[in-house]
Design a protein around this nucleic acid. Structure first.
Length: 651
RNA sequence: GCCACUUUAGCUCAGCAGGUAGAGCAUCACCAUGGUAAGGUGGGGGUCACCGGUUCAAAUCCGGUAAGUGGCUCCA
């Protein structure tokens, strides 16, 4: 028998018999390691614990307490779920199942009646039985024909077997636990017993292979851990995520509401939410004006012909509200994007190269007919106001302008203390080019240009095909919502096409007419989405500059201290501070609590001492200690807080 | 749009082997005048999402519509 060389993570290389497994390697190292080990990682790829090794390579032993260890556990739990379901519903067809970010799922299709939440108890019991039996999970190999015969009654599995076979020259692997066969390349535990604790969480529809043209399967979600404690932590995490949800906080702090009677996806901003929004709007307009942008106001309605010329009508129609027929031949359209409006601004004058870069910006209200199932609180709505801007540049100014926009973005993110994001270069889908403007050269050119700029700036990014706008590629900034969903916040998009469609020109230094390039950019997204994002990021405890109410004044005794409180309030109001007095007939402790629950940044208690000394006793949100200080000192502290925006380093 | 589930007072929810509604918080009134996270008593408030069906009788069972939630697809 021949020997193979195995490299360990510490760099050590040892010789073993060919056919050794991760299990044997782990056992040869130490029994404590073998006890924790659940799988291997050979040359960087996860493998089953008992997968035989036949060639030289590097090995990493995957233990229960690692991230990969959880993936293996979740893959296994998914398989056990499918096994249980196949026992409970013999007619059930199966899609795919695997680990997710925080658990696992399996796709199912039961014509006699889809799986519902009412079935969870039954499913859990059956899974527990399978786990208790500690069934051995073996990897078995089949020829394509053998495998197809085994799944003859299941069209999805047949398709999967065909896919697997063509990816692996006719050979198909399956994991066998008991009678159940799972055709997939998922790496799983050697037996079912190690899935100690799990919970079936929810069901949801999911299209077969993720294509909306395919039938919809029922996806059963769950999560699992090696220890009960870890499951408890995960369940608490999920609950806390829900409490951070902007819809929950938005309701508690009275920021906004959506009333189905007046329209889904059409949010109403209550005074508290409106204050936050107004503050953000003032901030970003000032910031942009300072950065060379010219802010404009343009109409939300325009003749439909504008959107025919721009191409929106051809490429974006399903997201647009139907046109309004005015009865005299005129068709008006609610705008879904602001770019055509800003093009009108550009075209209103004859432009010279001396005008470029011309930066037109607007908090532009737009309407998009989002599918009903996509609507979510403030983060996905049908009427939205975008922090929009279009810069018109000469071709040789693209890179510099791109960098300038990125710089602005970084500054704004710092001011709001947004730190958790990643860059995504969004290209068109090369397999589905009819969705986009048909100009291969433009796409190639602009995609390359974006990538080069990012590389030049030494910024980390990932690339995503099929995420481009229909008129051009984008640099997107991706963030996460409280519930883990990914959303685009900022975006910078190169556009060579709209200038062409609208025949945009500028007179160059040579006296000849040239075509400008447009850069579409949004720094803080829409007011709706950004407010939702901030609400979740700050957990409703808005930094002082954004907080709807910045200061609550609480007189110790209304009749004795109200006058002093009122004078104080007037003084603070004169500094444009959002302040109020809680003079309800309640105990002080009650009012303090209310101020904390409502996440008011500063609570000022005034009683005998304060009245006598012209001071305030300050309590900051989330802190228990208090401090008495002069009014002047407090105002100075407060002003410093405001001036630092949300920045942490200055706090 | 699709799949599953949900919709009861301003908010969070209970009630559901069918017999026309409850709690806590909020709100209002009165009492209590309190130094850093909920003082007491009492009152008001709901055509149980909407439309239809079954039934002597529907918040409760069935169907439809709308909206919401979790996802999928799509997206700022």
């Amino acid at each position: 028998m021949s020997k193979i060389n195995i490299t360990f993570p510490d760099g050590a290389i040892k010789e073993y018999e060919q056919g050794i497994t991760t299990r044997k390697l782990a056992e040869s190292i130490s029994t404590s390691l073998a006890k924790k080990a659940v799988a291997g990682k050979f040359n960087g790829e996860l493998i089953d614990y008992d997968q035989v090794l036949n060639s030289d390579g590097s090995i990493e032993i995957i233990t229960k307490d690692s991230e990969d260890g959880l993936i293996v556990l979740w893959n296994t739990a998914a398989q056990i779920l499918a096994n249980a379901l196949s026992d409970l519903y013999p007619e059930m067809k199966f899609g795919q199942g695997q680990a997710t970010e925080h658990g696992f799922y399996f796709d199912t299709d039961n014509q006699a009646g889809q799986v519902g939440e009412a079935d969870f108890e039954k499913i859990t019991a059956k899974m527990n039985k399978i786990i208790k039996q500690n069934l051995k999970i073996e990897k078995v190999s089949y020829s394509k024909d053998e495998a197809l015969a085994l799944v003859a009654n299941d069209p999805y599995q047949k398709e999967l077997v065909n896919d697997l076979a063509s990816a692996n020259s006719g050979q198909v692997f399956a994991h066998k636990q008991g009678e159940f066969l799972d055709f997939s390349n998922n790496v799983v535990l050697p037996s079912t017993g190690a899935v100690k604790v799990f919970k079936i969480l929810s069901v949801a529809g999911a299209y077969w292979k993720g294509a909306s043209s395919n039938p919809m399967l029922q996806r059963v979600y769950g999560t699992a851990f090696y220890k009960q404690k870890d499951l408890d932590v995960e369940l608490v995490r999920r609950e806390e995520a829900h409490e951070r949800d902007h819809r929950v906080i938005g309701n508690k702090l009275d920021l906004f509401f959506v009333d189905p009677k007046v329209g889904a996806g059409l949010p109403y901003w209550m005074p508290n939410g409106a204050t936050i929004r107004r503050t953000i709007e003032r901030y970003i307009i000032d910031k942009e004006v300072g950065d060379g942008y010219e802010h404009v106001y343009t109409p939300v309605l325009a003749n439909l012909d504008l959107y025919k010329q721009s191409g929106h009508w051809d490429h974006y129609r399903e997201d647009m509200f139907p046109p309004m027929d005015m009865g005299d031949g005129e068709m008006l359209e609610l705008r879904p994007m602001n770019c055509p409006s800003h093009i009108q601004v550009y075209n209103h004058h004859k432009r010279s190269y001396r005008d470029l870069p011309l930066r037109i910006a607007e908090l532009g209200m737009m309407h998009r007919y989002e599918k009903s199932g996509a609507l979510t609180g403030l983060s996905r709505v049908r009427e939205m106001t975008l922090n929009d801007g279009h810069t018109f540049v000469a071709p040789d100014q693209i890179e510099e302008e791109f960098k300038k926009i990125l710089q602005l973005m970084v500054e704004v993110y710092n001011d709001f203390d947004v730190t958790d994001y990643r860059f995504r270069l969004s290209y068109r889908d090369p397999k589905n080019t009819e969705k986009y403007f048909d100009d291969n050269e433009m796409w190639e050119k602009s995609q390359k240009m974006l990538k080069a700029a990012m590389d030049d700036l030494n910024l980390e990014y990932f690339e995503a095909e099929g995420e481009a706008a229909f008129y051009g590629p984008k640099l997107d900034v991706q963030t996460k919502t409280a519930l883990g969903g990914e959303e685009t916040l900022s975006t910078i998009q190169l556009d060579f096409l709209l200038p062409q469609r609208f025949d945009l020109k500028y007179v160059g230094a040579d006296g000849q007419e040239h075509r400008p390039v447009m850069i579409h950019r949004g720094i803080i997204s829409t007011m709706e989405r950004f407010t939702a994002y901030l609400t979740e990021m700050y957990k409703g405890a808005f930094p002082t500059w954004l907080a709807p109410k910045q200061i609550e004044i609480i007189p110790v005794k209304n009749d004795l201290h109200f006058d002093y409180a009122a004078k104080l309030k007037n003084k603070l109001s004169a500094h444009h501070i959002r302040v109020s007095i809680d003079d309800r007939n309640e105990k002080m402790g009650y009012k303090i609590r209310q101020a904390q629950v409502n996440k008011v940044p500063y609570t000022l208690v005034v009683g005998d001492s304060e009245t006598a000394n012209n001071t305030v006793t300050v309590r900051q949100y989330g802190q228990e200690d208090t401090k008495e200080m002069s009014q002047a000192d407090f105002i100075a502290m407060f002003s410093k807080d405001i001036e630092s925006y949300s920045r942490q380093e200055t706090k």
